[in-house]
Amino acid sequence: MQEAVYSVKLEEIIERFKLECVFCGENISDVMVESADINRPAMQVTGFYDYFDARRIQILGMVEHTYLQNQESWQREEKFRALFSKRIPALVVTRGLEIFEEMYPIAKEYNIPILRTQLSTSAFMSALISYLNVALAPRITRHGVLVEVYGEGVLLLGESGVGKSEAAVELVKRGHRLVADDAVEIKRVSSISLVGSAPEIIRHFIEIRGIGIIDVKRIFGVGSVKDNEKIDLVLNLEAWVEGKHYDRLGLVEEKTEILGIEVPSIVIPVKPGRNLAVIIEIAAMNNRQKRMGYNAAEALSQRLMEGIDKTRE
């Protein structure tokens, strides 16, 4: 289920980057892009097609353009035929460069869209890659609540009825932000980061037992919500079990795996009357401090060791 292949409509890319449709082709709305990698066909225009991945968007920049300009017309025709016959999803010409006459009939023959941007090749490439990485990221829906607390993305997990939504409302009242309630769509946007958001239909709604559905954005204002947030910390809320051992020092760092990425996580025991919002705030700040290089549990342990060494002397 997690390793499914995702795709994005070429039309969405055109819209996002305001690309000029030099040649649209037929049924452009059916063209899907499945690869987050892109290719500059410099090697290919010279005739080298080993390891060529036809699923990638091809980007024609100044190098390829200048090379092709110095070729005879029949050679250009041959080279475009070789490239377009691989059924690439689209060819993007950067820097607003001129379109070669030979491209049109061959693009038409193989129905390959030709697009153009005014951006420089490197700028367009980096923007497109980061966009595609998000659009094509592996994703999963988790039952939980995602809040942003002091700039940290905190994912609250736990059984239904443990108090995740109530804690979220309390956090919002204290000036933090709600990202998603009940269902959190998590995307692995890079090999080290996860980003969560709410499914569009239920975005910024929250369910409170006894009251029903409330609209957080309407009640608390635009400052109380956020569309997406990275996930820095996972808090597993569970009913307090008498006699169970809970972490007292915080020296051992637990991790929770989501989409193959290990995220720092803590088990928070929940008891009626325990102020969850404050505890979540502290957990977020402590995690932030750890990332910035200070670990309170380690510092305390260090101080103890120094004390022991001194008494030995």
Partner: peptide, 14 residues
């Protein structure tokens, strides 16, 4: 391919 908790109202609605 989207799976949600059946015990959560907003999840099912989403």
């Amino acid at each position: 391919e989207r799976r949600v908790n059946a015990k959560s109202l907003l999840g099912v609605l989403s």
